[in-house]
Design a protein around this nucleic acid. Structure first.
Lengths: 203, 203
DNA sequence: GTCTATATACGGATAGAC
DNA sequence: GTCTATCCGTATATAGAC
């Protein structure tokens, strides 16, 4: 607790970055030490092991992310369809800022299905959210067949996240620059909600 | 070249499996040797290094996959919309058989953008395919605005592949079994083409 | 071609000086 | 708290017998 920006914080910062870029196994603690500008031994002084550091950083990530999404779901001032637009925009903005995040997250989770998940389970908070209430209201008043919304949710998330996962491949095959890719993704902030709402209404 | 099923082939078989399950960095050559039932030293005898073995196996994978897709694209006996259905079914069946494949493929590619891609570039074959011809015919006769089909292609692939990438997370959060997940994916063989065709026609 | 034994390198972690 | 030096396990790769 000496420097103004504590070494501990600098390590976490760097770890977040390097882990997401290279994945857990391919990351060397030396990489993190180097990237954060602190000595390798400090890393084990503050966090006792690589694995421990990983868990801590990831839990923080997930927490921050969940909070931001739940805040949108529980905003009483927006309609169901407005929430879709806001969520889509929120996700896309977030991915543009952290392009490596989704693929990293999903590939690491395959290995540790239990550890990270068990700690933070927001399923109940999601089910009790205002957005879910609004959805129930919607299918009631519209007398629509009780369509299984899982497909719709899945489609939404798919159309948002997958392009970022496939980013390197897309750029390679189309010859797009990163700039052009981002522009395309920003276009989708308007397009995805339209597609989704069509799916719901043609259901 | 002694055994009926050559050791070389057994190693490649096992390597394909272990690499896709654990990723390149987390895979130990010992794992591969063990899984294939051959001695560790043999692995370096046939393929001189872990990296080399990886490249060989992956190139084969990509080749097989590309061939199967191009065959569908170039079938003159099916219409454009039939091809969509067939492609969707083909992809989903393939993913159900090899559930680890997409996430592995995409996460490894992020590291080596160049090597694997440069070898096999089917972009021109794709552009000259019958399916692309049929698409051009379609937008001409329908007098539709020359809609950028990139979004549509991206959406299709997203809705097919992403669920498999997110499989562990989906099962965790919904409590679904692998069986139920697969059933859901089979449902999508019919649903995805409908959604896509709607997108094209509402365009 | 296939094995055992081993060289060699690398990476996580710690001891101990400051 | 921060550094240098080092230990030690593990993983790739090879030498050499059969």
């Amino acid at each position: 607790m000496k420097k103004n920006k504590s070494a501990e914080e600098k390590i976490k910062e760097a770890a977040r970055l390097v882990f997401t870029q290279k994945g857990y196994a391919a990351t060397r603690t030396r990489d993190i030490a180097e990237a954060s500008g602190v000595n390798l031994a400090l890393l084990n002084y503050y966090f006792k092991s690589k694995e421990n550091l990983f868990d801590i950083v990831m839990l923080e990530n997930i927490k921050v992310f969940s909070q931001s999404v739940l805040a949108i779901l529980n905003n009483p001032g927006t309609t169901f369809f407005e929430k879709i637009e806001i969520l889509v925009g929120h996700y896309i903005d977030m991915m543009i800022e952290n392009p490596e995040m989704p693929i990293f997250f999903l590939s690491e989770l395959k290995g540790n299905p239990k550890k990270l998940f068990s700690k933070i389970d927001h399923r109940s908070k999601f089910k009790e959210s205002i957005m879910v209430q609004q959805w129930k209201e919607l299918i009631k008043t519209n007398k629509r067949s009780a369509f299984n919304p899982q497909h719709i949710i899945l489609n939404t998330i798919s159309m948002i996240i997958f392009p970022f996962i496939a980013n390197p491949m897309i750029r390679n095959r189309t010859g797009m620059s990163q700039e052009e890719f981002n522009t395309m993704m920003l276009e989708r902030k308007k397009l995805v909600p339209v597609w989704i709402i069509n799916m719901i209404q043609n259901n």
